[in-house]
Design a binder for these strands. Structure first.
Lengths: 145, 145
DNA sequence: GAAAATGTTTAGCATAGACTAAACTTTATG
DNA sequence: CATAAAGTTTAGTCTATGCTAAACATTTTC
């Protein structure tokens, strides 16, 4: 019991650090996934659409896109549409894959559809590869449809 | 298919807003849970211990505790130990309950112990009551030990 | 093709969380 | 009990994200 406590204490610091650092990664992932969706749906991603869908101001989108550009996830020219780099596409696809597995998994264990969609958005960013694998295994054994 | 897309677009804005707002709530919950643990373990919670376990500077703890005090979650006197208010205890217990269910659930679907502990820290803050219920139901049907 | 509408960017500001360094208070030790 | 060690707080700074208002660019419309 005591050793588990100590171990838990050690892990907590790491987990908390991850919480803080992950927040930016989460936002990057959300933006990149949305940009990929917009390109899919409309053929291009514009700042206004991002602002609209994310419920933030245009200026915020401009700021965040600058960061994403510095991180090598998107490319853009002034007053032009936004494109994803190879890395950006990778991140978007990875996110979508995670998202799909988590959402299907939640549905499979009996979470209502609307809730599954909302919760999977939040959980998506916090599941490790191992947990994702476990969820995928579960889905194979007990497929949803 | 298209209606699902539209629905998803509408939900996204809400989910994203939640992501931003939740980040502060997450930190509050992490602090409050840790304070409860420290009181349990050592009889009292001191700033240094919080800083140490969370891996942040003392000054950060002071700042955050001010916010928690304004939110009515903790009480403190200068140079004295930190106490939780009724609301603080409620939040701590709620968090622990969530955490336990999520962790046990991850173990039950085959996630390795260390990973379950880490992932449950992250996921804990993003599961709705409904998802938690679904996890609890699953555990009842298929208990861990 | 000029004026209006739409979209994008810049500028300036606010808040939260983090940090270091220095000051101050409490506790422990010789 | 005075001084050293440990713990706590304050002050000042940084970065990230958000906002509004205003300037600027592009597109549409008449």
């Amino acid at each position: 019991m005591k050793s588990k406590r100590l171990q838990s204490a050690k892990l907590r610091s790491a987990a908390f650090k991850r919480t803080r650092a992950d927040h930016q990664v989460e936002i990057s992932e959300d933006y990149v996934e949305l940009i990929a969706e917009l390109i899919d749906e409309k053929g291009e991603a514009r700042g206004t659409d991002i602002a609209l869908r994310l419920g933030v101001a245009n200026a915020t989108v401009v700021n965040t896109l600058k960061r994403l550009q510095n991180q090598g996830l998107v490319t853009q020219e002034p007053y032009r549409a936004i494109f994803l780099t190879i890395d950006g596409w990778k991140m978007a696809e990875d996110g979508k894959r995670k998202h799909d597995i988590v959402e299907k998994f939640l549905l499979a264990i009996g979470v209502p559809e609307a809730t599954a969609r909302i919760d999977s958005e939040g959980i998506e960013h916090h599941v490790s590869t191992e947990t994702l694998k476990a969820m995928a295994r579960f889905l194979i054994r007990k497929p949803i449809n």
